[in-house]
Simulated scan of single mutants.
Amino acid sequence: MPRAPRLPLRLTCALFGLLACVAQASTPSPAPDSLQPLLVTMNERLIIADLVALTKWDSGKPIQDSTREALVIANAREMAIDRKLDPDEVAELTAAQIEANKLVQYGLLAQWQAADKAPDTPRPDLVNEIRPRLDELQNLLLQQYAAFAPYRKDPDCPSWLGTARAGLIKDQLHGQALIRASGELCVVDR
């Protein structure tokens, strides 16, 4: 049986080197340590959305609270200035958290309306317990965002985000909300 022609050693090494470079180029760099804590905080806000939805169910109040939302965004802008962050970016981040939170609330209320009942679980007080916790999380979120901000334009950011987010998703509703909450963390030109 005839043998296949052998490539010269230099050409073989060059080909293997090229293949190694291609493989290395397609493998994203490791995610920065600052991403996971940021996503965990976003996710915690979404878990609290379940409690907010319960209070809205009990009170019959609407989910949309434009006055409260404007106040939260204005406070976030002030905090951004104090932390030397871009107030517009922080306002967008905060608005995304609010929209994601409402997404969970609307989804849960729709489920409970279809079942004609909400879960029989303890309801913390919205004003005295839930909102102060959300305010604490907002402060933490901005600290974590500041740590992650230098990586937002990294070409690997979307890959990092998709991988890190996948480990936090507990169900479809909260998964969609987490996608909304973190949807603009990466700013990568395509």
Rank of each mutant, 00 (worst) to 15 (best):
D154F: 04
P119V: 02
M1N: 09
C186Y: 01
L109C: 02
L109A: 00
A53Y: 01
L140A: 11
K153W: 00
L71V: 08
M42T: 02
P5E: 10
N43T: 10
E78C: 06
D120Y: 02
A25V: 06
H174C: 03
H174M: 13
Y106D: 09
R131V: 15
K56C: 08
V90C: 05
P155L: 12
P119L: 04
W112R: 01
Q172M: 09
D50S: 09
A25E: 06
L93P: 01
I63H: 00
Q172D: 15
V187W: 06
L39A: 04
N101M: 14
E129D: 14
L161V: 08
P62G: 10
L19K: 00
L93K: 01
N43F: 03
V104G: 01
A74G: 06
D33P: 08
Q176T: 07
I63Q: 05
Q97A: 06
E129Y: 02
E44M: 10
P87Y: 05
D82S: 14
K56T: 08
Q143T: 12
S34K: 06
I179T: 12
D120A: 13
W57H: 09
L168G: 02
F16T: 12
L142N: 03
V52L: 12
R123M: 11
K102E: 15
M79R: 12
P87K: 03
N128D: 13
P124Y: 03
A25N: 05
I81Y: 03
A14T: 11
D154I: 07
Q138T: 13
R10V: 11
R3A: 15
P32K: 06
N43P: 02
L108W: 00
L173S: 03
A53W: 02
E184L: 11
G107N: 03
A114I: 01
V22R: 13
S182N: 02
E129T: 11
P32H: 05
A53D: 03
L108Q: 05
T55S: 14
A20L: 15
R83Y: 04
E99T: 10
P150R: 06
L103P: 00
W160H: 05
Y151L: 04
L168M: 09
F148C: 02
N43D: 14
E184N: 15
E184Y: 11
M1G: 15
T67L: 12
I48L: 15
L108M: 08
P30L: 10
I81T: 13
L168D: 02
R3G: 12
R190P: 13
P158R: 07
L15G: 07
E184I: 08
I179K: 08
L85V: 06
A23F: 07
K56M: 11
